[in-house]
Design a protein around this nucleic acid. Structure first.
Lengths: 153, 153
DNA sequence: CGCTAATTATTAGTGCACTAACTAATCCGC
DNA sequence: GCGGATTAGTTAGTGCACTAATAATTAGCG
């Protein structure tokens, strides 16, 4: 690795570098920022919204189950779920027959919130001016990237 | 909006929904997770790494300048920069002739760290098994998304 | 059966990331 | 050159997100 090559390819890499990981994190923050005003009307943060989506799809579920679905550490979800409980959107109780597991269930209020949530995707697509097809394409790219990171280290 | 249509398109949207914003945030977290062990050897977190990249490209720069480049709130960078100062990688001092602005400069130690950082992009690409072309493609997609979010609300 | 190992959740601690409120300095129009 | 408006940074407060350590329960093997 000579100082000559360092001034070309590797320097470019450091610039390019500032692009993929940088662009990805900025895109993520920016898109979450788009959701923010929309989700505020539902009284949810973006991470909370993702958990509610998981529960609207199926409930009750254990904390572990949600953690696996969202690729989150249980330690991240533990306080988040307590806040959703405080908001009376979910209940937290031990699973009968397995005192280790925590069963998360929707309250009537939490289940009812789904009605309002159905309007969210459309609002976001409109704001981002993306068609369902474009959304699907971006989605595929992200899924591929996630799959790569999950492969054996 | 009949209950019939609700059970089809909008329900699908809530599922699909769980995909783009979800996939994007998971991809971001996953990729940052790939950087983690690599950057630990440099004693940097990922956000700190991005700031250092900005400074290796050009320095000194003001906090405001870095904030604009990284699309971060000044309030986010303020404590982060103090930690970089504690690590003796940068200096923080007021700009001569403009007591409002804060000039961020590299210490010799901070400038020297760049040598080690040149190895990072290659390691990440190898780990993700992405070619420069694939990286460029993903990058373009993210840039497009960011541009959309930055447009007039 | 009894004991070890694995599973599940929680807590503590660090570091981002954002908003809102605040301080201080500078700009600029009169 | 004065005084309000703007700009640049900091602080406080909330909520993620992670690791490491802990606690409690269950599984399963000898």
């Amino acid at each position: 690795m000579t100082s000559v090559s360092e001034t070309t390819e590797e320097t470019d890499d450091l610039l390019l570098e500032r692009q993929l990981c940088f662009a990805l994190t900025v895109a993520s923050r920016s898109v979450v920022g788009i959701y923010k005003p929309v989700l505020e009307k539902l009284g949810l943060t973006h991470p909370q919204y993702l958990v509610m989506l998981a529960l609207w799809e199926r409930s009750p579920r254990t904390l572990k189950d949600i953690s696996d679905s969202l690729l989150h550490e249980p330690a991240t979800l533990s306080p988040l779920l307590k806040r959703l409980e405080d908001a009376e959107l979910i209940t937290r109780e031990r699973v009968a027959g397995n005192e280790r597991a925590l069963a998360i269930n929707l309250t009537p209020k939490g289940a009812a919130l789904r009605e309002q949530a159905t309007a969210v995707p459309g609002q976001i697509r409109e704001r981002l001016q993306l068609s369902r097809e474009e959304v699907a394409e971006l989605h595929q790219a992200m899924i591929g990237l996630i799959a790569t990171t999950q492969r054996t280290p």
